[in-house]
């Protein structure tokens, strides 16, 4: 097996699991959003890794004065398709992250905290009081 082999994929999995761990073990909502962000970036790195060809070059056609100098036959280009998919995914990612952060801001304004367990306590106390009332 060539040295890099599957190493790229293993690091991607490590990054993904760090994001996943931050998501499920930390109570702070901002930390959870950051964890999701890590998770998303790891998927992007995975896709871009699959598109790479060792010894290839960026998929921008090399031209001389007479036009395109050779298609894919003469110059080795990396696969452009994952790049296109991930380019849009990054922009959509920041849009959805802004949405998540807006939710966090609203939660802070409503409950006064962004810690998971404190919000749970307040919700629980609310429900108890609702039950006690006629």
């Amino acid at each position: 097996m060539e040295f890099p082999g599957l190493f790229n994929y293993w690091v991607v999995i490590f990054l993904m699991m760090v994001g996943f761990y931050a998501l499920i073990s930390r109570g702070n909502l901002v930390k959870k959003v950051v964890g999701l962000n890590l998770f998303q970036t790891s998927v992007i790195i995975f896709y871009v890794s699959t598109g790479k060809i060792v010894g290839g070059t960026a998929p921008i056609l090399i031209e001389d004065d007479h036009g395109v100098a050779g298609g894919a036959a003469e110059v080795l280009y990396s696969n452009p398709l994952p790049h296109v998919l991930m380019l849009t995914a990054i922009v959509v990612g920041v849009a959805t992250m802004a949405m998540a952060l807006a939710l966090v801001v609203r939660i802070k304004e409503t409950y006064g905290t962004i810690e998971d367990d404190e919000i749970q306590e307040q919700v629980l106390a609310d429900e108890l009081q609702e039950g006690a009332r006629p």
Binding site: G51, M86, L87
Partner: peptide, 15 residues
Amino acid sequence: VLDAVDVAFTEVAVG
């Protein structure tokens, strides 16, 4: 390094 220059550009500007 992975030849995805457009993605790199977007990541710097956005991320």
